[in-house]
């Protein structure tokens, strides 16, 4: 599972790439892309630093049975 990316909103600033502790993001052709095979810790730092809302880390909310 990796953060969701909206390429149209991405301005390619690369801040999300620089905060990702797992090196799971990369800028390709001016927009952010996920690095295949990298597991995400869901720290949400990429979402925090993104000024355009291009990357997000949604949570599934479940009730423990």
């Amino acid at each position: 599972m990796m953060p969701q990316i909206d390429e149209e909103k991405c301005d390619g600033c690369g801040l999300c790439v620089s905060v990702c502790l797992n090196n799971g993001l990369v800028i390709v052709n001016g927009v952010v892309a996920r690095v295949e095979g990298v597991d995400c810790d869901w720290c949400t730092q990429c979402e925090i630093v993104c000024a355009t809302g291009a990357i997000c880390c949604p949570f599934e909310i479940v009730i423990e049975r």
């Binding site: 949400t44 979402e47 809302g53 997000c56 880390c57 949604p58 949570f59 599934e60 909310i61 479940v62 009730i63 049975r65």
Partner: peptide, 20 residues
């Protein structure tokens, strides 16, 4: 918000970001 958007795990529910 958590209670309103929670599922019991048997079906997929909406996914929310902290920004949402």
């Amino acid at each position: 918000i958590l209670l309103e958007h929670a599922v019991d795990g048997t079906s997929a529910g909406p996914r929310l970001t902290q920004r949402d």
